[in-house]
Nucleic acid binder design. Sequence first.
RNA 1: GCGAACGUAGCUCAGUUGGUUAGAGCGUCGGAUUGUGGAUCCGAAGGUCGGUGGUUCGAGCCCACCCGUUCGUACCA
Length: 528
Amino acid sequence: MAEKTKRNRLTPRLPRGFVDREAGDIRASEEMLAAIRRVYERYGFEPVETPFFEYTEALGKFLPDQDRPNEGVFSLQDDDEAWLSLRYDLTAPLARYVAENYERLPKPYRSYRAGWVFRNEKPGPGRFRQFMQFDADTVGTPPGPAGVAADAEICMMAADVMEALGIARGDYVIKVNNRKVLDGIMEAIGLGGEENAGRRLTVLRAIDKLDRLGIEGVRELLGEGRKDESGDFTKGAGLGTDQVATLMEFLERAFKAAADVNATVASGVAFNNEIDQAYFLQPGTGSFYDSDLCVEGHNELEGIRGLVRAAGYGMDRIQIDPSVVRGLEYYTGPVFEAQLTFEVPNEKGEPVVFGSVGGGGRYDGLVGRFRGEDTPATGFSLGVSRLASALKNLGKLGAGEETGPVVVTVMDKSRLADYQKITADLRAGLNAEGGPVVPVEMYLGGSGMKAQLKYADRRNAPCAVIAGSDEFDAGKVQVKDLLEGKRRAAAFDSHEDYKDERPGQFEVARGDLVEEVRALLARQRGAS
RNA sequence: GCGAACGUAGCUCAGUUGGUUAGAGCGUCGGAUUGUGGAUCCGAAGGUCGGUGGUUCGAGCCCACCCGUUCGUACCA
């Protein structure tokens, strides 16, 4: 019978790619969210919240086909047969919200929101099917100088967020690029037009891999393709020699400029116009750089550069970097990426750069899908979980163990009312209005004294309150300082002595209990 | 998605060429201590050996498929 029950018992199983979050994680991420929120608020952004589900077409995904309705996203069919999907980012839902409420909203509309997003894809270490993003976007700034200013503001705000989270200047960098530059070059080498969209995508993907594969790897991917060490072959863009040469010329030049910037920053110089501008090309040289798109892209980048430098943000915080590709589909202009530059040991102990924790850019077409005309928009999205693990690595998060509750032990079960009164007095007396929370609880389990103290210990309680008939008769209470007791425990090797001495424990009058515990907690805070 | 490796107690792992009842350390719980968290000693619980099917007199070990984890690669709004 018992065996049978056991056999049929369900195994508790967390679905793959999802995580349970425990007290420490939740407190840490709430702290982070509050810090990020303060920065966004300072820039005049206001919160908005949209639901987890959207109509699938609103997310910009093709309608799921019957065979694989959940490719990439989690989708289900409503009872009116319409397809719904869990949102996979916060940008597409924002575009829907803005388009739907366009007439009511002040333009430009600045908003921020934090929320869970879902992706139905292969999970891995640090990669989940549900994770949190924290976005800020400006919608409706007209093109031209105002639009460039909106982009610059997003970059500066991203930098401010990093520092608000305690990430030191130099440990992060906000990188900026412009899709128009690469698009212009690709156009110039004959990759323009609808029929080349696929190849353009392949080229962008190849460039995106530069940090991992190096310049030669990218060259292979632009041409025939590349075979990796596992023998797997990745098909390349199939470009001709001249086309590859042109792209590589641009890349090498751009990376030389980026390397110079890094070297300058490393030497402690954050402002140097000449080095800062080396990436920018002089028009009229007769090269592919004269493509209209390219020039436009460069002008926008130069505009952003000028604004952030004028505002005091140097190359150590915001950099132009031609390898930032990002968002292969909907970005239409400037793109941003927040990178952490410090190294952390991986599981093999090798140092690796932490890398990207967020990104964004200009997406002028996204709101327009609902409105029939382009609506300029620019924004930024932070990966909260990745940032959290980065901060943990820096020791900026979850450093101190949370102090547990004051535990009122129960020795005599016939006097529960008395223990409850003690608990209530402590709870009321230790928790001033608007002050920090001091948790107080009465032990609610069924075990004896020994187990109750073990429980208090495991809860990381600062102290326990003990009272039996002796104490009640005398109008006294025992207060046990668990931290002090723990510290002194090592000095005992006989349990008898340990028990007789009761290190950290003292007796107080019932009427003084709240005051005594308050003083004890203050002493502990002072000592730590 | 493709390729590879791995999967034994809550955790870290041992388990011989296929051979009887699958072990250890740590952790958990109980006792020594009916009113006191540590240390020490004693004891106990805890396993569908990832799952299903097969080969065999006999499978933790061999084979097939599935699930899961990890690594590489692709994708990443």
